[in-house]
Amino acid sequence: MTTSRRMQYLKAVSVTAYIVFLLLPIYWLLNMSFKNNQEILSTFTLWPTDFTLDNYITIFTDPSWYSGYINSLIYVLMNMVIAVSVALPAAYAFSRYRFVGDKHLFFWLLTNRMAPPAVFVLPFFQLYSAFGLIDTHIAVALAHCLFNVPLAVWILEGFMSGVPREIDETAYIDGYSFPRFFLRIFTPLISSGIGVAAFFCFMFSWVELLIARTLTVTDAKPISAVMTRTVSASGLDWGVLAAAGILTIIPGALVIYFVRNHIAKGFALGRV
């Protein structure tokens, strides 16, 4: 009994230590965002002595800053919608029919993810400028499908395979047409799968910078690109930079809070 209790104690300590390790750098950024530049650079303080919200006010009053957030959110949401709606029928086909090569589906879909973004930057730029799509949200949303669609197909396929085939057959016997069956009966059954797939699309689209930066100039510039520009231009505005960084964490934190009960399930079902 004592060994198992000691084990429990050890587990709790190690998990706590890991979480503290994760939170320390984030705390440091938060701490910096409430300081003015002079305090950041001249003294070393563990918490802001001269608490200020100026950095946040700068961001929320300057359109070149806050429009970055809006742009990012727009293309991330567009990407989520495109990726999930394209992935749904494909995942259904993979989960219900057998065809050549479907055993290695997972691997072949993942090869899309294996292409380094650095490789695709230049061709993407040329492709989208040929279509006149440079500096639009849809360009970034489509480009991000490169790595999000395979992932979405794969996650959804896992959830769909968990739904027994008899449900499809019963629905057809009851006279449902395919689209009606798919929307009315099937989609609600895998709603948590759709949530998880959407979450991962959000995650990978939100954090990507290289492609998003290349395909945009001003009108659709993502927040992360706005940040890099400011670093190089004014050089030392650490306070605003930290505040902007903290603000980029918030949408992700909100999204993960909503899907927290489904994430764990999401991957357990996927077929490799």
Binding site: V15, Y18, I19, L22, L23, L24, P25, I26, W28, L29, M32, M203, W206, V207, E208, L209, I223, S224, M227, T228, V231, W238, L241, A242, G245, T248, I249, P251, G252, A253, V255, I256, Y257, R260, N261, I263, A264
Partner: peptide, 26 residues
């Protein structure tokens, strides 16, 4: 469980250049 999951997933949702900035400063 929820608390752990949410806190652990935080670094995954930070844009990559912000991750770079955090560690550059840290």
């Amino acid at each position: 469980v929820s608390v752990c999951l949410v806190l652990m997933a935080l670094p995954l949702l930070i844009p990559w250049n912000v991750v770079g900035t955090i560690w550059q400063v840290f």
